[in-house]
Design a protein around this nucleic acid. Structure first.
Lengths: 352, 352
DNA sequence: CTGTTAGCGCATTCAA
DNA sequence: TTGAATGCGCTAACAG
């Protein structure tokens, strides 16, 4: 049906072994036979059979990238950066070295995450990159850890990007706690004392860490305490705009005296802004708003959104290199990626 | 090293063939041996070897999805929808039916597009979905068409989503020309006569079709013609916000009498709005702005963006079903997806 | 219903 | 520097 190594060998009047050696390029071959083989490959339009090659060599050129929501630019940017690192020289077909980075969308579902991990294990993937916050259910965490060890044991490199570290994996964590803390400190410095918080889903690590950072800042400033209404000023939702909108309405229903609202990420912040505007409140005159991540649209929002910038592209690229083993492991297998405050016009001192 | 079919067979005291039959589930097996095998699979934590299975069966469970820019929600939404269609019941590992949808980011580069196609051909992918506009260079178009036929010939289903049709592929085209025309008609109906246009890269089909639709509307209204400055009122750029910003500045430099600006897509429109605001122009009082696609952020922009809605999620889902052969081919192998006008507050009648 | 027998296409020993 | 032989792990006839 399709043209095989043997066909190429016949046409080039060499053995299949020689063709294989020419194609993988990791073995000395006489220049004359080499060109002869390459010409035959070309004429026959031969394309390596990946599965067969993977079976024989016990390795594949697949690299899996798991994301929670591919429609969210946060993940799109990271995934795109990882994939860009796989970039082959684009040379002749059949040349080794090209990895196929495949992006798998879990939709935030623990089952699908495990499912994809199994699928990738089945494909004997060269590496797996897990991006974004993890679900904190103990059973699931254990299941993921087990899968990760198993993958690592079978030679698949496991890299985490934006997740808390686990054993047997190289990790790039984001400094969500520290970043959130600095963001809230910015608001406190401006003079805000009553700050609403729109959090993400309660069971995700990212959500918890950002919330902890926020409360740590409040605590250090003595703005929390038993009667600080911390709980009442926090509303949980999803990491999307609609949740931000609804949560803001809920926040306003509970309390209209807040002079600022911190959102768990920029997408939520967009919904917060929309809701405030619909309620006739001005930003930042009546209420300051801050986000997290610094996605591309944040600088263009009206008013421009104050947020914590995470170098998503760089982090993704680095995760990609780590996955390929092209970059040395960070000490202890864990590196922290810092967030940087981008103070823009959606935050200002409170009025009156 | 890893546990194989034979190990499972030994433990379950059956032959390898039986284990294979239990796992693929497409063959009658006695219930008692079935459970025995499943237990052995479980105890041994056996995971099918994908490459070996693909080699023996001459098929794989990979489905490739090519996108121009994964960081752009336009593609993220389509890709996510395709992938969701692959959704396995999530049952026991080893169960057949689960397809691995892998998203490949071409970055709009023709070479990388071809490269990924080769990689997928090498993996003997079950299907390939090409999304978004195509590059119009004749050589490249021919190369893609050739690859597509070859893939189709070797049993890989090829589906196009948002591209002009080619032979050997099932196609879902977007009605870019008609949509663009109706959008400009909307502006003409409001009373606009001088309309700027911020186009995408000149060599893409999407760019050309949308521009043609725009000009067709102008022509039908008698607003174009030799002295209509059509060329002068059109600026090309990339499909991103920064290009929209720059193009708008250029447009204003050339001519400040336009009362409306049409952007080739929503992302560009965002940049257009930002530039207009920075120039002290109000939307829509001074200049109306319209986009295309209706991405999630468009409804939330300030003012809410008038745009043509493309049912990206539905289209992606349908492309996914087509790729799996779960939906009948449209007549002629080509179906057109219509765009719907979403008239919002960024467009209004021109002022005096 | 189940076991036996052959390969699938390639990478790698080992000789030559 | 090259060729011949072997097996990777699995599926698909073919028998029984």
């Amino acid at each position: 049906m399709a043209v095989t190594l043997a066909d190429v060998a016949a046409r080039a009047r060499v053995s299949a072994a020689t063709v294989s050696r020419v194609l993988s390029g990791n073995y000395p071959v006489a220049e004359s036979t080499r060109t002869r083989v390459l010409r035959a490959v070309d004429e026959l339009e031969y394309v390596v059979n990946g599965p067969a090659s993977a079976l024989a060599a016990a390795t594949s050129d697949l690299v899996g990238v798991l994301v929670n929501d591919i429609a969210d630019p946060f993940f799109g940017i990271i995934a795109g950066a990882v994939q860009a690192e796989m970039g082959a020289p684009g040379g002749e077909p059949g040349r080794g070295g090209e990895k196929l980075a495949v992006i798998c969308n879990t939709g935030g579902s623990p089952e699908r995450e495990l499912n994809y991990l199994t699928l990738l294990q089945r494909q004997r993937a060269a590496a797996v990159v897990l991006t974004g916050g993890a679900v904190e259910h103990p059973d699931h965490a254990a299941a993921v850890a087990t899968k990760a060890s198993r993958l690592a044991a079978s030679g698949t490199r496991v890299v985490l990007c934006g997740r808390p570290p686990i054993e047997d994996a190289t990790t790039l964590t984001f400094d969500n706690r520290g970043g959130a803390r600095r963001l809230t400190e910015h608001l406190l410095t401006l003079g805000h004392r009553r700050i609403g918080y729109v959090a993400g889903p309660a069971d995700r690590t990212t959500t918890r860490h950002r919330l902890e950072g926020h409360r740590a800042a409040l605590g250090a400033a003595g703005v929390n305490g038993p009667d600080a209404d911390e709980e009442r000023l926090t509303v949980h939702g999803l990491y999307d705009r609609a949740s931000g909108y609804d949560a803001t309405l809920e926040l306003l229903r509970r309390d209209r005296s807040s002079t600022a609202i911190v959102a768990a990420n920029d997408t939520i912040a967009l919904g917060v802004c929309a809701a405030l505007r619909d309620q006739g409140l001005r930003i930042p005159e009546d209420v300051s708003v801050a986000g997290f991540d610094d996605l591309p649209f944040s600088a263009d929002a009206v008013p421009a959104l104050t947020t914590m910038r995470l170098p998503l592209h760089d982090a993704g690229a680095r995760a990609g290199r780590l996955a390929l083993g092209r970059e040395p492991q960070p000490p202890g297998g864990v590196a922290m990626v810092r967030a940087e405050l981008m103070a823009r016009s959606s935050t200002a001192p409170p009025h009156g």
